[in-house]
Amino acid sequence: MNIGIMSFAHMHAYSYAQCLLQLKQENVNLISIWDDNSVRGKEASEQFNAAFYNSFEEFFRSGLDAVIICSENVHHHDQVIAAAKAGLHIMCEKPLSLSTEEAENMIRTCNDQQVILQTAFPVRFAAPIRRLKEAVEAGEAGEIVAIRTTNRGQNPGGWFADPALSGGGALLDHTVHMADIMRWITGSEVKEVHAEWGTQFGSDGIDDMGLLTLIFEDGIIASHDASWSRPSGFPSWGDVTIEVIGTKKTLYADGFGERGHVYRKSGRAYEHVVSGEDMDMGLIRDFVDTVKEGRSPSITGEDGLRAAEIAFAAYEGVTILNKR
């Protein structure tokens, strides 16, 4: 199977490329890279030993079966449409789109072209999150009453902090992962969103904070904390946590909880070293298997849309999502 990566704008592209290299013995090959930033693209092509293209047409004709899109958010729509029309299966970085209409068009086009559209939600492959889901399904928590989630990090800077390219700040960037996880675990859709958001951690011209209260169709309520609030001295880049409050007991999982603690005499005095399974590897392997087997993706374009829709709703402050 031949895979290409469209843009290394998102840092996840480097991790996904490393994962693909690890699958080489399974006849999975990263053969082509497209990037509108030629310097960045050529560097990546040298690093990962793949051909570089800055023309869509040449890139799509390079013998690909599938592409992974890691461009700036604003380009996801057009690049998914282009790849789908080229007959290529697609995994697109989150957030899937910058509007509901865009996402619906992406999903429709991929369906029409009979290509796979998978949304890149690697947190689904974090071992602690998967184990929590298994425990919920086994009835350990009882009936779910409420959920509390966090996804906080540091301002990544660059295009992430440019609304013209990202479409939104921490609220968009750090809501979609856990919105997806909550939908995945509950099997229920969000019907109501209440949010307070703004710029409170020093970002310039873009939101870096969002607190969301969610009400699900089955009555479950949830709080979510999305932010670029972690100080530079924080022992890790941030967090991805979930607490499921059930009728029997409360279950908790930290997506990056499998870690070592490093204490130094100087420099970065305290640091977490992630020692658990690589969630990006789980995501890439799942996408590869989906393409190989020609099955429906475990994380669909619809999943990407529903998660992004919660962030879009939060920007409105109070939103009652339409019945679907």
Binding site: E143, A146, H194, A195
Partner: peptide
């Protein structure tokens, strides 16, 4: 808020 007959009551204030 959400409350179950056989479980906890949970309240979220924003």
């Amino acid at each position: 808020e959400n409350m179950k007959d056989n479980g906890p009551r949970h309240i979220i204030a924003l």
